[in-house]
Amino acid sequence: MNIIVNEDLRAYIDPLTEDEYAALERSILAEGCRDALVLWGEVLIDGHNRYSICSRHGLPFQTVQNTRFTSMEDVHLWMIDQHLGRRSVSDFQRGVLALRKKEILETRRLAVLDDPAPDASASEAATGAGPEAALPPPPPLKSREAIARAARISSATVGQIEKIQKAAAPELVAAVKSGEVSISAAAVIADLPAEEQAAAAAGGKKELRQAAKRVRESRGGKKPASDAVAEVAVEVLGVATTEDGEPEADPRIALLRAQVNALQEENGQLRAQVTELQAQLSAARHSAG
């Protein structure tokens, strides 16, 4: 069987950590490769780590064809949805993947406007696989709230991830991915020059916390309400803290953060509506006068 490994597809989703890869390898060596690798023609779509482990150890594996893809965009959307459905994916990864999905869907929407009937024969010829049935078009992600629902995170977190993607230095992004710094703190640190971000990331958790603290204090000493909620949860709910003083993972904190973020967003929308109504009223008075 000829299997083609597309390096772009292999790198499309963040790779496993060394510990995660080692755990998967131990599982396959003990129990075999239980899940089939997904192919599109000869191109490997899902199961790159399993394929690598099985090939290195000479272990058998099963494959299954997905012949419903008509383009690489279909493949990317399928890969994104597969990973968004996995519990092991971090909130940051969820947000990044959901934002990628939004970009793909928007690009596809614009392409359809330019060419309502694109020809899929080229992609079929390239892979040797024709579609059994067209994939149903996924609903567009037009708003930050829609992106948040797709990623199963708060809309405020989506906004923070967007800021990190635009302004964060590579070292800071790596720190978020590794769990060295929270998404909310990284979004604050992203206001610093790239050199200072990199220096904070090199200093580890404590230096990252200090950098976030300095930025917040420079804004007037105010902390985001979601961070204040975490501190109250530590005191009132008796949540344990880590060595760095951060609250340990607790579903109650996550729920409180989400509720506060939702209320803040609703408050912002109401303020915007009031401002718009005031402008309309002022315009009406001006025209009447």
Rank of each mutant, 00 (worst) to 15 (best):
M1H: 12
N2F: 05
I3C: 10
R10K: 15
T17G: 09
E25M: 02
E25N: 03
R26Y: 00
D35N: 10
L37M: 06
W40E: 14
E42M: 03
E42F: 01
G47E: 07
R50P: 05
R56S: 10
R56V: 05
H57W: 01
Q65C: 07
M72P: 08
E73W: 04
E73H: 09
E73F: 03
I80T: 10
I80G: 10
I80N: 08
R87E: 14
Q93V: 05
L99K: 08
K101Y: 04
K102I: 05
E106V: 06
P118A: 08
S121Q: 14
A125Y: 12
A126P: 07
T127L: 14
A134L: 15
K142Y: 03
R144M: 04
A148M: 04
R149Q: 11
A151H: 12
R152C: 12
Q160G: 02
I161R: 05
L172A: 07
A175H: 04
V176E: 03
E180M: 11
S182T: 12
E196H: 09
A199Q: 11
A202V: 00
A202W: 00
K205Q: 13
E207P: 01
E207H: 04
E207L: 11
L208F: 03
A211P: 03
R214H: 09
S218G: 15
R219V: 02
K222S: 13
A228E: 15
V236Y: 10
G238H: 05
G245P: 07
P247D: 06
E248L: 08
I253P: 14
V260C: 13
Q273K: 12
E276H: 02
L277A: 07
A283N: 11
H286K: 15
G289Q: 10
